[in-house]
Computed example of a mutant assay.
Amino acid sequence: MSPPDRIVVHLASPALFVGASADGTGADTDVVTDEHGLPYLPRHRLAARLRAGAAGALAVAPELAAACDEVFGRGRSHGADRMLRVGHAVLDDDVRSAVVRALAGRGEPVRTTLRRAVTDAYTALESGTGVGPDGAPEPGRLRTNRVLLPGLTLSSALTWATAPGEEHWRLLARACLATTRIGLRTTRGRGRVDVRLAAADGDDPHATTLLLAAPVNKEPDREGLRV
């Protein structure tokens, strides 16, 4: 198995990746998109969720605390002590290339119309009553939210400052498995995700992540080999 080179995020339910879209969509809560209208998950949000997942994983594997500090930095650090950098989680290269080609050379207002159509293809508008600070609905506050459609898979490139060891991969794999929700209003059934490590060799990301997350068996097998 070749080392994973990216993290894949599969949306199992509608997700609110709130931000500014390329042209604005008229929703009260918009979705973050790039300059071509394609939605993405910003890297700092993904990194924050992975860090939270890693912290949860330490409850059953405290021996990985040092690896957690090395992979994600100490105390929410963004400095040189952090081994891992993740990229924006984006749609696959074929989709992005096709959209870039479709927009190339287009003038206004056609370019804006096409960008909005791209955003519409991956998102939907949902309407609901606004929620107050206590979590209760507030009558008379109808709001619209633009959400990413379930079924999308986004990919984030991994960059390591130094070569990761076995414990670093185990920590990251467990952080991925522990990250099950991303985005706003996750308590309202939004943002359920499967986060996995993937390699260029095409191996199943789920199997790859489970393999890397498995604890090391230091007991010798029947032939005297350590497994």
Rank of each mutant, 00 (worst) to 15 (best):
P3K: 08
D5V: 09
A12N: 15
A15K: 10
G19V: 03
A22H: 04
T25D: 12
T25S: 14
G26D: 01
T29M: 05
T29L: 13
V31T: 13
H36E: 01
H36L: 06
G37T: 07
G37Y: 02
P39H: 03
R43A: 15
H44L: 10
H44D: 14
R45I: 07
A55Y: 03
G56T: 11
A59S: 14
V60Y: 14
A61D: 15
P62W: 01
L64P: 00
A67T: 05
A67R: 02
E70P: 11
F72C: 11
F72S: 00
F72G: 07
R76H: 13
G79N: 10
H88V: 10
A89V: 05
V90Q: 12
L91A: 05
V95T: 15
R96N: 09
S97Q: 15
V100C: 12
V100T: 14
R101S: 13
A104G: 07
G107N: 02
G107H: 11
E108P: 12
P109Y: 06
R111G: 07
R111W: 07
A117Q: 13
L125S: 12
E126Q: 14
T129K: 06
G130D: 11
V131I: 12
D134W: 08
G135W: 05
G135K: 06
A136V: 14
P137K: 01
E138K: 15
L142G: 11
R146C: 02
R146P: 02
G151R: 11
L152H: 05
L158G: 01
A161I: 04
R174D: 07
A175W: 10
A178N: 07
A178I: 05
T180W: 01
R181E: 15
I182N: 03
G183T: 11
G189M: 04
R190S: 05
V193W: 04
V193S: 00
V195E: 04
L197A: 01
A199P: 11
D201L: 09
D203K: 09
D203W: 02
T209A: 06
A214P: 08
N217D: 15
D221H: 00
D221R: 03
L225C: 10
V227L: 13
V227M: 11
